[in-house]
């Protein structure tokens, strides 16, 4: 058994988060906790507020009420790049790759945080700039191997099929060596085989690096399979929170899911 797999203490608490856009209440009074090394899934029907929750966690949206405590620190109106500095990385529901760049450059961008050379050193490609570029490239190659995308290294991302783009986006997030990884529907639109691959990657990341994972996914089979814990949202409210076995028998969840669109 890998030592990382032992689920640790709570590292992130969202406390009484409320967020609305104009008249639309995307999240109302949501609290949830994330523990170190666990895989937490957030599920719920379309428009339930799942993506909004991730956006609040890494500072893309700022809630009108409530706040997020990460590793003991309460943050107020934090910018996304600060969340990245604290070790939170993510992928997006609608692929958000850098379209004009190659796969390699996309993933290298994920390592920008680790680079310290100033722009003059970079302009001269001299000293630290050169050393860093080569060292970070080596790390990126490890990720490329890990996700089995060696053959498309130099391809512009725009030319890749959907499934591979999703994989490259995961690679870019992993390149930042995050301690917490937020994945917004990483398997949407994939065929069974691609889904299996993606599941394997997620489990491997969690297992090998001990990365805490917060996952949004619609495929119940996958969710029940890989999650340690599940949070259920519906119309911006939390209606369930517990282990997969608990969620399976939660009457509110069953009502919302089976009675609703699914």
């Amino acid at each position: 058994m890998n030592p990382h797999r032992k689920i640790g203490d709570v590292i992130l608490q969202a406390e009484a988060i409320s967020l609305s856009f104009g008249g639309v209440k995307a999240l109302s009074n949501i609290s949830l906790e994330v523990r170190e090394h666990e895989i937490l899934s957030i599920i719920g029907p379309n428009g339930a507020g799942k993506s909004s929750m991730l956006n609040v966690i890494n500072g893309v949206y700022h809630p009108q009420q409530g706040h997020v405590v990460y590793r003991g620190k309460t943050r107020e109106r934090m910018r996304p790049h600060e969340a990245a500095r604290q070790g939170i990385a993510r992928t997006f529901q609608n692929i958000a790759l850098f379209k004009g760049m190659s796969v390699l450059d996309n993933i290298m961008t994920g390592r920008n945080l680790k680079m310290r050379a100033n722009f003059i050193q970079q302009a001269l490609y001299w000293g630290r700039a050169q050393r860093e570029e080569i060292a970070q490239r080596a790390y990126v190659e490890k990720i490329i191997d890990f996700l089995e995308i060696q053959h498309i290294r130099k391809t512009p991302v725009g030319r890749l099929p959907y499934g591979l783009q999703k994989r490259v986006e995961l690679a870019r997030a992993l390149a930042a060596e995050p301690s917490m990884l937020l994945l917004d529907e990483p398997m949407a639109g994939m065929n069974v085989e691609e889904k299996q691959d993606m599941c394997r990657f997620i489990l491997d990341v969690n297992d090998e690096f001990g990365t805490t994972i917060v996952l949004i996914e619609h495929d119940m089979g996958v969710v029940m399979d890989i999650s340690d814990r599940i949070v259920v949202l519906d119309y911006g409210k939390k209606i369930g929170d517990g282990s997969p076995d608990e969620i399976r028998v939660n009457p509110d969840v069953i009502a919302a899911y089976l009675g609703g669109s699914h």
């Binding site: 996304p80 790049h81 850098f98 961008t109 920008n112 945080l113 870019r172």
Partner: peptide
């Protein structure tokens, strides 16, 4: 180099760039 990648990232998808840690 990294500054060029940061520029292109901001150009192609600014939200994703900021999420990956690039200071706008």
């Amino acid at each position: 180099a990294s500054i060029g990648r940061a520029w292109m990232a901001v150009r192609d998808m600014d939200v994703a760039a900021e999420v990956i840690g690039i200071r706008m």
